[in-house]
Amino acid sequence: MHDVKGTQVDAQTRCVHYHSDIDIIALKFHCCGTFYACWSCHEEHAGHKPSRWPREQWNQRAVLCGNCGYEMTIQEYMNTSSCSSCSHRFNERCSLHYPLYFDMESRP
């Protein structure tokens, strides 16, 4: 299984900050290539400032389904509300945090 960093991370990548049944994704941060349960976990544990994934790299596998361990591309994740492999539903409100992880202003 993947090593997901964070505070009180469970087997399905939930953390102390986000822990509902549908909070089951972890993101690989562009700056360090490490999976964290959420932005706040990165802030608390990484020891460096985050950087966002540029649009031209949205084909990278950087989103982890905590239910089955499938790694999807950023673009694949942004185009679905559930895992492409196991169909477990994701928290759709996570899209509000896209600008924290992904450069929403860069040109393709």
Rank of each mutant, 00 (worst) to 15 (best):
C86M: 08
E43H: 15
W39K: 06
N59D: 13
W58M: 03
E43F: 15
R55I: 04
H88C: 07
M72N: 07
S82V: 08
S87Y: 14
C65S: 10
C65M: 09
K28Q: 09
E71G: 05
E56A: 14
M78N: 00
F35H: 10
H45I: 09
R61I: 08
E44G: 05
R61S: 14
G33K: 03
K49S: 11
T80C: 12
S84D: 08
T34I: 12
F29W: 15
G47S: 11
Y36R: 02
A62Q: 01
R61W: 04
C68N: 13
K49N: 10
P50D: 10
F35E: 05
W58L: 05
C65Y: 09
P54C: 03
P54N: 06
S81E: 10
A46T: 05
P50W: 14
C32F: 02
C31N: 12
L64S: 02
H48F: 11
V63P: 00
K49Q: 11
N59H: 14
K28I: 03
S85P: 07
S51W: 03
S51F: 02
N67Y: 14
C83D: 09
G47R: 06
H88Y: 11
P50H: 15
H30T: 03
M72T: 12
S81I: 10
G66H: 03
S40E: 14
R61C: 11
E56L: 14
E56W: 12
S82M: 12
F29L: 15
R89P: 07
E44S: 12
P50G: 13
S81N: 13
G69D: 03
C83Q: 06
G47V: 06
K49D: 10
F29I: 05
C38R: 02
R52L: 00
C86I: 07
F35C: 08
H88A: 11
T73V: 02
